[in-house]
Design a protein around this nucleic acid. Structure first.
Length: 522
DNA sequence: ATAGGGTTAG
């Protein structure tokens, strides 16, 4: 059947153009597009087969199921469903985005003129709902597949389900791959922290895009290798590739983890210089970086300069002030949030409780804890940490006993740390037993317990702990990182003098040792 | 129709 083209009058054309304008990349405002559509209907102006796909796109962008259903009704009334593939794909896409897969499926099944886009839309919908069983069924039935179909499957298996091996099999089966398929596969590895495999593919890639670099930088940054993240960022710059806001975030976060204040400042300046838009996310990352590097003033300045702030922005302010021994100020931001009617999430409570902990604000901490509607084990952990630091061991045990869930490794870890401070051998032993039970007894636990024994002159205990550590194997030394003048960071590991700047580091350590009376343990 | 972003105690 030939598509039925309705006579398009000038008014309809004008409205269509207005709707389209609000969906263009430069100035997206789907809400406005919908308002124009509503106005169009109210004014009795007829819609044509150009109108509906745009309106449906707007519904999709705002995940507006209710609006989408209204439009669906209009489409059926106007008789466009049977005639226009764009309208039908628009409906399928809208329902997929709203996770209404049964609705999409009905439309899809009764649709005889399906094209590749319709199939891919369905695949994407199932992948989004993590329903790879259905996606696979469709994928097998497809009359033809393009690179998009394959990429959707790789994304579903690799990134959404974490079945990276399976994703890789598909990737290897592809006849032709584009940058999306490569990037999706690389990101699958990066998401599970297999940066070695990610790097291998990245190195093999012929035409790396900015997104490829971003995936790698963020992957390193999120998986305990911030140093490599910065190295890669510099490598990228040396290839004359200009970062955008997505790309620079991973690097700022890497600086935060490394405590690399100068590198962080450099990035901040770079952003301003190159006019990368400073949105909430970039600003929040900057605040976090400054806080973790001890630059409270600069963090505050960023916060004050922001036009839009959200829960995470406040969260990094609160936890950052806590870290920097400004407990009172952290509390003031927390109260500001409460009074502002902001939605408080679990993380905010963790941050504010830990700020109380740093500052020794017991009663405030207890009060805030009471306000948590469904406290999680982390919140209990924070409160335990607070009590333990004050040496309130009686309350600690009562409190643990009252918990509706099992204490976790971190919680017992806090208890053990408190026992070190207060030289509490009995409770320390108890905590070690609990940690052993739940499999949280890494070597650090025994080293800590050994220290507790040592503080009380219990040398048999010390020897027992050492035996366990010996059996458990070699401890990986603590790593430290310093920023090197002139850019870059250098890593060094206790007990090893290696590394590029080993000799320099040795010299610094020697000079420091003369000033500070270093205490060697273990 | 498919790909990249920020926060959590010790």
């Amino acid at each position: 059947m030939l598509p039925q083209i309705q006579h398009t009058n000038k008014t309809t054309y004008t409205y269509n153009t207005m709707i389209k304008t609000h969906l263009s990349n430069s100035n997206t405002n789907p809400q406005m597009a919908l308002e124009i559509y509503v106005k169009m209907k109210r004014n009795g102006i007829s819609c044509d087969n150009y109108t509906y796909p745009f309106v449906l796109k707007a519904c999709k962008m705002i995940c507006g199921l209710w609006e989408g259903r209204q439009v669906h009704g209009e489409v059926m009334k106007a008789g466009f469903f049977d005639s226009d593939v764009f309208v039908r794909n628009g409906l399928i896409g809208m329902y997929c985005k709203c996770q209404q897969m049964s609705c999409s499926r009905i439309l899809f099944d009764c649709f005889h003129g399906k094209d590749l886009v319709s199939w891919n839309l369905m695949l994407g919908g199932y992948a989004e709902c993590r329903n790879m069983v259905e996606a696979q069924k469709l994928f097998d039935e497809m009359p033809e597949r393009d690179v998009v179909s394959w990429s959707i499957m790789i994304d579903g298996y690799g990134k959404k389900l974490g079945l990276v091996t399976h994703a890789r099999i598909l990737f290897d089966q592809m006849h032709e791959r584009d940058s999306v398929s490569w990037n999706t596969m690389i990101d699958s590895y990066a998401k599970i922290g297999n940066m070695v495999a990610a790097r291998e593919l990245f190195n093999l890639m012929d035409h790396k895009t900015l997104i490829s670099w971003t995936i790698m930088i963020n992957g390193y940054s999120q998986h305990q290798n911030p140093k490599e993240a910065l190295t890669l960022f510099n490598l990228m710059l040396s290839h004359d590739i200009k970062p955008d806001k997505f790309c620079i975030i991973g690097s700022i976060s890497a600086c935060a983890q490394l405590g690399a204040l100068d590198s962080g400042r450099w990035l901040h300046t770079y952003i301003k210089k190159t006019k990368i838009p400073l949105d909430v996310v970039v600003n929040t990352t900057l605040i976090d970086m400054y806080m973790k590097c001890g630059g409270i003033e600069e963090a505050r300045a960023v916060f004050d300069s922001m036009l839009e702030r959200n829960v995470i922005t406040y969260n990094v302010m609160i936890s950052g002030l806590g870290i920097n021994n400004s407990g009172a100020e952290a509390l003031s931001y927390f109260y500001q949030m409460e009074q502002g009617g902001m939605e408080l999430d679990d993380l905010v409570y963790v941050s504010v409780l830990s700020a109380c902990s740093h500052a020794g604000f017991v009663s405030e901490g207890v009060e805030i804890f009471k306000r948590i509607r469904n406290p999680k084990v982390e919140h209990y952990g924070c409160l335990i940490d607070l009590l333990v630091r004050k040496g309130e061991f009686g309350k600690v045990l009562n409190f643990i006993g009252s918990m509706p869930m099992e204490p976790n490794v971190d919680l017992w870890g806090s208890v053990l740390l408190g026992c070190r401070v207060w030289k509490n051998v009995g409770l320390g032993e108890f905590a070690v037993d609990r940690l052993t039970e739940i499999g949280g007894d890494d070597r650090g636990v025994y080293v800590l317990m050994s220290n507790i024994y040592a503080d009380s002159g219990m040398w048999d205990g010390v020897a027992a702990m050492r035996r366990i550590v010996a059996v458990k194997g070699v401890v990986e030394g603590g790593k430290s990182v310093i920023e090197v003048v002139g850019g870059g960071v250098e890593e060094f590991v206790s007990g090893k003098n290696g590394g590029v700047r080993g000799a320099d580091i040795e010299e610094v350590v020697c000079s420091l040792s003369k000033i500070v009376d270093l205490e060697y343990e273990g």
